[in-house]
Amino acid sequence: LVGSATVLCTDKTGTLTENRMALAQVWLPSGEALTLKHGQPVSKDCRKLIETAALASDPHPSDPMEVALHNARGTFAGSESSSTLPIHTYGLRPDLPAMSNIWDDDQALTICAKGAPEAIISLCRLSDDAAQKVLKAVEDMATRGIRVLAVATSTAPDRQWADSQLDYHYTLAGLVGLADPIRASVPDAITECRRAGIRVVMITGDYATTARSIASQAGIEEGEVLTGSDLEALDD
């Protein structure tokens, strides 16, 4: 059966890539964009963005993206993860791919959120022009194969938290871009498959532009990108 295979479907993260995420780029609403290198100084606003992204993550993360954000907080923001836990968490939902943690600093309840750029844009209630500016930055980062998350903050009035993230008015903090290197052996393996007459198809939940860039880096032939909504629209 293997000898007669003509199509090979493969996952991306941890299969084509090393599953070794690191914060690679940040973008601020001011338009400032910075490609990060270990040990380089960053602006106060960039440090605040990185810290907010970490505070919007699980305090004891196992997810590679959240681990990378906590590591970046120590490297670039100059602060380590606290033993304090958020007092409330809003998890990801199918209709709202964003999560928020509420932190109590004894003076106010601060809400830190991160998620899909479109979801955070909605939570921030951005104007069309502002939203397009953010999406343009997302597209620019994604063309480099970077996975992009948007980050935002809010406060809980009267120190009371609401039933849903949708009940707050968030302020956009910026974008964080995470890179996961292609495994060194992958391009040669893809070439061998092609020589054997096997077409390789990558399956991933990434943003379409990010997926296309990673596929190109891996040596997968350029082809059509199908999103989840595209697949749902297909008939038998």
Rank of each mutant, 00 (worst) to 15 (best):
T35Q: 13
V7S: 02
P117A: 06
D128F: 05
Y168T: 02
L28S: 09
P181Y: 12
D63G: 00
E66T: 04
L126K: 05
G31Q: 06
D105T: 08
V186I: 15
H60S: 08
A189Y: 01
P117S: 08
R212N: 09
G228E: 12
P41G: 10
D58Y: 01
M21A: 04
W27L: 03
D158V: 06
S216M: 07
T171C: 04
T10K: 11
I102R: 02
T110Q: 13
A211Y: 08
V2T: 13
A77E: 09
D45Y: 02
T191Q: 13
W161N: 01
K48S: 14
D140K: 11
A130F: 05
G145V: 08
D206R: 11
L85V: 01
A196R: 15
S154K: 09
D167W: 04
L1M: 12
V201D: 08
W27N: 01
T6I: 03
G228S: 13
D163N: 07
I220A: 07
L166E: 14
A137T: 11
D63E: 10
M65A: 09
Q107A: 11
N101V: 00
A53Y: 02
A162L: 06
A189P: 00
D206V: 07
I182R: 05
Q107D: 15
T210S: 09
V176I: 14
A184C: 04
I214L: 12
L85I: 00
A72W: 00
G31R: 06
S154P: 02
L69R: 07
D163H: 04
A215H: 09
S122H: 13
L55P: 00
P94I: 08
T17E: 04
I214Y: 09
A130C: 11
T10C: 15
A22H: 13
T15A: 07
K114W: 03
A162I: 02
P97M: 12
R194W: 05
L23C: 04
V151S: 05
R212P: 01
S62E: 12
G115I: 02
D58N: 13
L231I: 15
S185Y: 01
D230F: 05
S100M: 06
L1E: 10
D140F: 01
S81L: 05
E192A: 12
E18V: 07
G39M: 12
E118A: 13
H60D: 08
G174C: 10
L92V: 13
T155L: 07
Q165A: 06
P41W: 10
I121E: 09
A56L: 04
L69H: 06
W27K: 03
E222Y: 08
A150I: 04
D206T: 11
E192H: 10
